[in-house]
């Protein structure tokens, strides 16, 4: 009886305040679409950037006089740093093969000898793949005897880092703005619902109704708005994903992606509605009591 009473109150209130309720639902829906898309784009970017970084190779060129034995010794020394994921010694011959593959000419044909130095290719552990450590690594390794030069694509690394940061910061800014807007609209709807029923709330208090019983209909109202907004947003997002997958042959999404879209979008919607209305309703209900 108690729960059916609360539920009836909730539905009644949703219907009664249908204009602001619709505005809240639309805001939640649109905000969720932006939020989830932003999240997906950031994640995709982040993954790609990480892949790029992961595949970044630091090349340690030895002095021309040094041979593979020196390279082996140096490689062992570098491995002791504990920051290296993979290390490989590229002999003069292998370097020549690579040269031929890349430039289509045999280096012996051009120069009659092989001037390519022995090289150590280093792949750092992911957590050390940032410009600060790379610069330190370069300086330190170049100081070792037998090393001619350490080379990595520092322009690329720095660019990747700037992009990642920009995405992160703009994501956070958009997130804050959206949460703020949703909070404002849902709060306003709850306020209207509570004030429309201030007489009823005052009466329930005189009858000795507990806090939860008085507030629950409005909290549920927020959660339902979140649910409906979430369903709308999830539908929109899924249509958009299907459209993208159909338009670009290279892009396809697994069924798991669609499933997660449903679950995540709707549960985020419900949670937002629940928390915002729970936070708001106490405030407005309390005001009514003070006036009574």
């Amino acid at each position: 009886m108690k729960s059916s009473f609360v539920l009836r109150q909730t539905l009644n209130s949703l219907w009664r305040e249908r204009t602001p309720v619709t505005a809240s639902i639309l805001t939640i829906g649109i905000a969720l679409i932006i939020l989830i898309s932003l999240f997906e784009v950031s994640m995709a970017l982040y993954r790609n950037l990480n892949d790029l970084k992961q595949n970044m190779v630091v090349e340690v060129y030895l002095e021309p006089s040094r041979g593979e034995a020196d390279a082996g010794r140096l490689a062992a020394q570098l491995e002791n740093y504990g920051t290296i994921e993979r290390i490989r010694v590229v002999s003069k011959d292998v370097a020549a093969e690579i040269f031929e593959k890349e430039f289509g000419e045999n280096i012996y044909d051009i120069l009659k000898e092989n001037p390519l130095p022995v090289t150590i290719e280093v792949r750092l552990l992911p957590e050390y793949n940032h410009s600060d450590y790379l610069a330190l690594f370069k300086k330190q390794v170049e100081a070792l005897s037998g090393v001619d030069e350490v080379h990595y694509r520092h322009v690329l690394v720095e660019k990747l880092e700037t992009i990642t940061q920009a995405v992160l910061i703009s994501g956070i800014v958009v997130l804050i703005v959206l949460v703020f807007a949703m909070n404002l609209l849902i709060r306003n709807t709850i306020k209207l619902s509570v004030y429309a029923r201030r007489e009823q709330i005052a009466i329930m208090k005189i009858l000795g109704a507990g806090n939860l019983f008085v507030r629950l209909p409005y909290i549920l109202e927020g959660a339902l708005e979140g649910l409906i907004g979430g369903i709308m947003a999830a539908t929109g997002l899924i249509i958009a994903h299907k459209f993208i997958a159909d338009s670009f042959a290279a892009v396809h999404f697994s069924p798991m992606v669609y499933k997660m879209l449903w679950i995540n979008t709707i549960s985020v919607g419900i949670l937002i509605g629940l928390f915002v209305s729970a936070a708001a309703v106490g405030h407005f209900v309390h005001k009514i009591h003070a006036k009574k």
Partner: peptide
């Protein structure tokens, strides 16, 4: 419902 309200608040069975 008006008369039932105090009983609903108390949580009695329907």
């Amino acid at each position: 419902d008006n008369v039932a309200l105090p009983l609903v608040i108390e949580g009695y069975r329907s």
